[in-house]
């Protein structure tokens, strides 16, 4: 029914639509595929200036050369610890706070909610400098807590969880209260299990966005061993600027979570972004 009423801009002429889509699809995907070609070229090929659409010999050893040239294993671990810890923290706190705003009545609720939402408007640049100064005096520069703490929860996740929990029937909570369940137990046993789909979306998006985060890890680290993958790769490229094959190999490693994320979320990606997005 809905499908029939949908606007058809090119009646009878789907060809034009497909041509546009295929061209733009290729423009989107080809540069990323080219990254693979680049990563497997020899030094000679990558520096020759002749177009190489497929390397003569696939240089798989570029990956081991990359790990020999800079501590990419360490960069990977650092990124994983940062993104992983932030994701776990979001999964703990965002639904808890979202539940409070969705289902509990208490004095100060409106002000508290507006205060949380108002943080959406604050550019990271505004809180970055004071947080940097405080962390520097705490000795938290070049530390995991320094990378993680500024992002422990955020208003996007809280709002997403509140919107998801609001339509859940109040009777579930009332019934548990009558049964004498404690408030935290109600949240943990009654509400949280209902939230699985929303938690999956929240967890996946949080991880990928934090994995890709650039500005804060650039500032909050200075020692090579504490760099995250996006920063480590960018600085590596500045040093080894002629060896684009190695940079591309590093970029492929950095791309792995995005690829996994994409495979998992393919079916609900568009809805997921429309739901959680605004970023």
């Amino acid at each position: 029914m809905h499908e029939q009423l949908r606007e058809r801009l090119f009646p009878g002429d789907r060809v034009a639509a497909y041509v546009v889509l295929v061209v733009l699809g290729l423009v989107t995907v080809l540069p990323l595929l080219y990254m693979i070609v680049l990563a497997l070229q020899s030094d000679g090929e990558v520096q020759s200036g002749d177009p190489v659409l497929w390397p003569d010999h696939l240089q798989w050893q570029n990956f081991s050369r990359l790990f020999d040239a800079a501590p990419f294993g360490r960069f990977f671990v650092n990124s994983f610890v940062m993104a992983g810890a932030i994701t776990v923290s979001h999964l703990i706190f965002d639904p808890l706070v979202g539940y409070v705003f969705a289902k509990l009545d208490f004095p100060g609720k409106r002000i508290a909610f507006v205060a949380v939402l108002s943080t959406l408007m604050v550019p990271f640049f505004v809180r970055m400098l004071p947080i940097y100064s405080i962390f520097a005096s705490l000795g938290w520069i070049d530390s995991y807590q320094g990378l993680i703490v500024p992002f422990l929860m955020d208003a996007y996740g809280i709002f997403l969880m509140r919107q998801f929990i609001r339509p859940l029937p109040d009777e579930l909570i009332e019934a548990a209260r009558v049964d004498g369940a404690g408030e935290f137990r109600i949240y943990l046993r009654v509400i949280l299990p209902q939230c699985r789909p929303a938690l999956a979306v929240l967890g996946l998006f949080t991880f990928v966005f934090q994995w890709n985060e650039f500005l804060w890890p650039l500032i909050a680290t200075s020692r090579t061993e504490m760099r995250t993958l996006p920063i480590g790769l960018t600085l590596f490229n500045q040093e080894y600027f002629t060896q684009w094959n190695l940079t591309a190999a590093g970029a492929l490693i950095l791309f792995v979570p995005t690829a996994i994320f994409f495979v998992i979320t393919q079916k609900f990606l568009v809805e997921g972004i429309a739901l959680s997005g605004l970023k």
């Binding site: 989107t28 540069p31 994995w211 650039f214 940079t247 970029a251």
Partner: peptide, 23 residues
């Protein structure tokens, strides 16, 4: 098509920046 067009949005800015600088 919708999902493919979203890939760059989920890709690290380091990859995007370095890749285009090379291209």
């Amino acid at each position: 098509f919708r999902s493919v067009l979203l890939i760059p949005y989920l890709t690290s800015v380091s990859i995007i920046g370095l890749l285009w600088r090379n291209i």
